[in-house]
Amino acid sequence: MAFTERRGQPSPLKALAYKEFSDRLKSRWVAVITLGFAILTIVVSYFGSAASGVVSFRTMAATVASLTSLVVYFIPMLALTLGGGVIADERDRHTLDLYLSAPITAAEFIAGKYIGLALSLAVPSLLGFSIPGVILLLKTGVGSMGSYMVFVVNSVALGLVFLSISFLTSVMFYERSKVVGFTVLVWLVFTIVYDLGLVGVLIATKGALTPGAFIVMLLFNPVDVYRILNFTTIGEYSVLMGLASVDIPGFIRPSVLWAVTVAWIAAPLLASYYFFKKRYMK
């Protein structure tokens, strides 16, 4: 066996991204999550109307409505656990100093790790929702294909948002136990507590909070942004998401919601970069 100089050597960023993604491929993480999402989609679509005594594939729009209410719990948890230990792990292994002593910038290090983990989350989301989507398409027609595609892309984006938040968590805390604790807190706040709090504020202020102000406050929760974006595409089925009674002001267009989602991806990631440099390289 002999090694020779490799031509076209990947950049440090690509090498890091490849390592993170290939680790999840080899550990079958990607396969298991893909299968999980596919089974969830099929079950939700086929047995979704079982309560009314009927079992058959429902339309894509109805499936999106049901899936949205479940995905808001699963994807944030997966993303937060995927990225939560990313820095603490390297620090504990003493490999972090090895990376930082190499000709690689903090931005390349963070970006390489992020891209690798983002792929590990995006690939199962795309495959796990798209493959059953094709079955739905064949069974129920192309009627709501657009909203289903928005749901798939939006679900990937939701994962990226929480992956960014997990990076920030990983950079902010040295101890793994604190990372885990904060991860659970973040998940609880965004998936349950924030909305309950908003409803509480709405009731306590006896309608003083205008619908416009209420919607703007929803934008501060990426899970709500995800819900509204899916809701705006599926029309009558939005009742299943509990948003039918909310008047959405005209300025909340899909383009605005996508922009807010991108901001939710970028802001925690940029903050991670800032705190990483401050904590490990000052």
């Binding site: 440090p12 080899k26 490999t95 090895l98």
Partner: peptide, 25 residues
């Protein structure tokens, strides 16, 4: 230092060669 248990020694060296701009050669 605690290298990655799931990588082979060769894969570990390839990873750090790419990170550092070196080569196993």
């Amino acid at each position: 230092v605690s290298f990655y248990d799931n990588l082979s020694g060769k894969a570990t060296l390839e990873l750090f060669a790419n990170i550092k701009g070196g080569s196993i050669g």
